[in-house]
Amino acid sequence: MQIILPSILGYEVIARDAVASLARRCGITPERVEDVKTALCEACMNAIEHGNRSDPQRKVQVLCTVDEQRLVIEVSDEGGSLPMLPRKPVQWTFEQRASLRGMGLMLIVTLTDEVSVVADPNDGTCMRLVFYRNLVGDSVSAS
């Protein structure tokens, strides 16, 4: 499933509701769906504001794939700036007055099971968020 949005703040909530609808239907617990929503919103806002510099002509693409173990969400923009992701576990350093973008990235790293950033072949940036599915007999803890 794929969603294509204009780079206008506000539209990330539409992508959020679409992906939440998918996540609920593929065995992700309601509590974890909230994490999916928050991480996705942060990734989309990052793509809109930083990647696409809020140019409404540029698009943000959200591609969701579901396999046996995981829900993978790839958020791509048309900008070339690769954000530096903090490492897990995130050290929340409020004293250093991290920028809002920095806070968003810290949230994304904290809430996802795996996350990576790659340069897109079309000169864009793609952030890949991975959430493990809550399957019967799964040894991976949902927390």
Binding site: I3, I4, P6, Y11
Partner: peptide, 9 residues
Amino acid sequence: GQVIELRLP
């Protein structure tokens, strides 16, 4: 208008 596109299997 602003356009949102959804592609579904």
